[in-house]
Amino acid sequence: MTGTVLVVGGGPAGLRAAVDLADFGARVLLVEKRDQLGGAPVRWKYRSLAPDFTPTEEVMGPLIGFCESSPMVEVHKGSVVEGCEGSVGDFTVKVRNEADGTTTEHRVSSVIVATGFEHFDASVDPRYAYGRAPNVIGINELEAMLKEGRVVGHDGRPPKRVAFIFCVGSRDRSTNPWCCTVCCGVSIKQAIEMKQTLGDVQVYMIYMDIRTVGLWEKLYWDSMEKYGINYIRGRVGEVYYTGEKLLVKGEDTLVRGPFEVLFDMVVLAVGIEPGPGTKQAAGVLGLKLNEYGFIAPRQPNVHVDSGRDGIFLAGTCIAPMSIEETLSEGSAAAMQAAKVLKKTVAV
């Protein structure tokens, strides 16, 4: 019997689970594919988190700091889980370091899968000209620009007129048919930050529905009432680069009018989709993927339960969700692992 828990993925959910378990007194084996902890918020250099513009460091910093310094947490960066045998209370897992190719074996009591998500690759959908035309960027790239405090086009000049296109790679049978739940809020947050950074910029949100769920609604109201951000209901059919500016074609469904307007910059609210890490981890751990490629819990309403005893789920590898939900799911999964520990080794 062992008192160690394996956490796959060093993003918000994984870090939260690791911190909670270490606090609880368990040893944690944290395996992260990339060379840096923090997951998507750190990797994509998120400036701040919706809905209250909390700086990313404020949320992620303490978690990363704890995991990197705590003697209870053994961090394996640049590594992936390659094998997993055994059953609840006593798994034997192989962790391979991608850099030097060495494989180590560990015995763990339970496994928490928190492999996270990838942003949708907008170049898959040709109509947005992403990757073909300059100044067409994703919200992930804009976050990094905002973090630098320098929002500029490819020519180094700040844009005067920006369009945010919602639901890129979401709610579309050709790409991803689900709603990513957060990119409305995140885009609005960025639009506000852009207004704050650039001052005289006209921002247009081209949306199909605004899904600022729960308390995020405040973002939507403030963006309109305090920052004068414009909303156009419709969906864009084509973005065309004129050689100077970007021509955005769409319909304003509120007036049944076609519009073809020139913009300096187009920001695509790229959605959330399961990444290759999720697929790989699910394969190794013998977990079922649902029709969309996310890991399917035993019962759709109980996210933590993977359907295999001793393996628990947390965060966006199950479904798209916001960072606050991800963090609580990390804690929830840690609780399940703690229950297993209590039954088997009595910490």
Binding site: Q202, Y220, M224, E225, G228, N230, Y231, P258, F259, V261
Partner: peptide
């Protein structure tokens, strides 16, 4: 086809009596 958005009239409305809250409309 609509080729330009022009908010000058809208800004004017905001300054007129009782038009001040129009920016809240969703």
């Amino acid at each position: 086809t609509i080729e330009e958005f022009d908010h000058s009239l809208f800004e004017g409305v905001k300054r007129l009596p009782r038009g001040g809250k129009v920016g809240k409309c969703w």
